[in-house]
């Protein structure tokens, strides 16, 4: 669970308490490798493919995915980052703050954009990201890669590449880190 969601989800600014590890570091790396192969297979190579990581949790995953793609195809796949904050549908309802400056220094016309995020939950972040991408051109297609799909969608959005389908309760939280994926809760206690 990215800092963005943690700050925006009740209890605001709470702390993630891990309960159970659901993927270890090797599982995570294997999932990234597999997704890389699937991207190459689906797009018949990586020509005109760009990766866009969603701030903040999707950005390190996008970079690891680019390494995997380069190892498979020996081509360098551009990696950008996108902060969807100005497109969120909960502005004015709960605290929202920009996390990082968006970096998409190319025209997206006629390219295939693979959005990369750590956890897919309600789908609202992806909805905002699709809206935001329009400011950078008209991609030929947009695909979605996530490490964990935890269900509970509130919009008609589905991922194209999934590391792991993880059934969760609504009040649980999922944290994707370099050393694996953890299931747990966000608690108010440690709030300062």
């Amino acid at each position: 669970m990215a800092e963005r969601e943690r700050a925006a989800a009740p209890p605001y600014g709470g702390v993630f308490i891990p309960r159970k590890q659901v993927m270890d570091a090797d599982d995570l790396q294997r999932a990234i490798w597999r997704i890389g192969h699937e991207i190459v297979e689906r797009n018949h190579g990586v020509t005109d493919v760009v990766l866009v990581g969603l701030q903040t949790g999707g950005v390190p995953i996008a970079h690891r995915l680019a390494e995997a793609l380069q190892a498979v195809t020996e081509e360098v796949v551009p990696v950008g980052s996108l902060d969807v904050v100005f497109y969120r549908d909960d502005i004015g309802i709960r605290p929202v703050m920009p996390e990082a400056v968006t970096e998409i220094p190319w025209d997206l016309d006629h390219r295939t954009v693979v959005l990369v995020d750590d956890v897919l939950f309600t789908g609202r972040t992806i909805r905002a990201a699709l809206d935001a991408l329009q400011a950078y051109g008209r991609p030929r297609s947009v695909q979605l890669a996530v490490i964990v799909d935890r269900g509970h969608r509130e919009l008609p959005i589905r991922p194209d590449y999934v590391g792991k389908n993880l059934p969760t309760r609504r009040n649980e939280a999922v944290d994707v880190r370099d050393d694996g994926v953890w299931l747990g809760e966000v608690t108010k206690e440690a709030r300062r």
């Binding site: 989800a9 309802i93 709960r94 605290p95 929202v96 703050m97 309600t122 609504r170 009040n171």
Partner: peptide
């Protein structure tokens, strides 16, 4: 960024 009243939404 900081709405006057923070609504409690789930999700």
């Amino acid at each position: 960024a900081n709405p006057k009243e923070v609504a409690v939404l789930d999700g």
